[in-house]
Simulated assay, not measured.
Amino acid sequence: MDRSETEAEIFGSLFVLGQHLTRHTEAALVPFGVTSRQWLLLAVLTRAFPGQRPTLSQTAAVFGTSRQNVKKIAGQVAARGLVELLPDPSDGRTVRLAVTDKVSAVFDTTEAVAQQRAFLGAVFADLTDCEVATLFGLVSRCIDTLQRTDATGEVPA
């Protein structure tokens, strides 16, 4: 296979991987009462913005989706008491997201942490430590490239 054929195969495979990850993640999240997209929003807020109250737009940029989609998902998790949608003190038109203490109460218990580790361990069980590190680096670089593309408004050529 030449590079363009390999790239096409990888690209398609990433979508297939995403489908499998979503299906397995949905099943693993049933005990927590959230969907995979809701969990991802919580993960973005707690990992990318620890102790902060990012705007919907800032959150959307990291999440990789539209501001409107983040607002919809945030409304769903707000109904469960996991986040608050707050007006920005200096610009009332801007909405900020704040994670509530309920997130820790749900996801940081000893049992929940053990379940999460077991799930992730199963996903990456067939990879060596070196392969996991390599995969992390490669995925991070692809995400960085796409985020730069989003920032410039250019469509990848």
Rank of each mutant, 00 (worst) to 15 (best):
G81T: 10
A125T: 08
Q76N: 13
T59K: 12
G51V: 07
K72S: 11
D2S: 05
A60C: 14
T46Y: 01
D88Y: 04
A122C: 04
Q38K: 06
G33A: 06
R148F: 00
E154R: 07
G51S: 07
Q115T: 12
I10F: 07
P50R: 10
S66P: 09
E154C: 08
R117C: 02
A157G: 14
P50C: 14
S140H: 10
E9H: 02
N69R: 15
G51H: 01
K102N: 14
A8R: 07
P54L: 08
L127F: 03
L41S: 05
A43M: 13
K71D: 13
V77L: 01
V34Y: 03
V95C: 05
I10K: 03
L17Y: 13
I143G: 12
Q38C: 15
S140N: 10
V70T: 02
V34P: 05
T110F: 15
A122P: 02
E111W: 06
V99N: 02
A122F: 03
I73S: 00
G137T: 02
V103S: 00
F63K: 01
V139K: 01
V132P: 00
H20P: 00
L45F: 09
R47S: 07
S66F: 00
H24A: 15
V83I: 09
H20G: 01
D108A: 13
S36Q: 11
E9A: 08
T100L: 02
F136G: 14
T152V: 11
R37K: 09
V30L: 10
A61E: 15
T149R: 11
L120Y: 08
P89H: 13
T59F: 06
L138N: 06
F49L: 02
L86P: 08
E154F: 00
V77M: 03
T94C: 00
L120R: 06
S140I: 07
S13M: 04
T35M: 07
V113D: 14
R23S: 12
D91N: 08
M1A: 06
T109M: 00
V83G: 01
L97N: 03
P54G: 11
A27F: 11
L17K: 13
L56E: 08
L56G: 09
H24S: 14
G33H: 02
E84V: 02
S57P: 00
Q19L: 14
L146P: 01
T25S: 15
V106R: 12
F32A: 13
D91M: 08
T59W: 07
F119L: 09
T152I: 10
L86K: 15
G121P: 05
R117E: 09
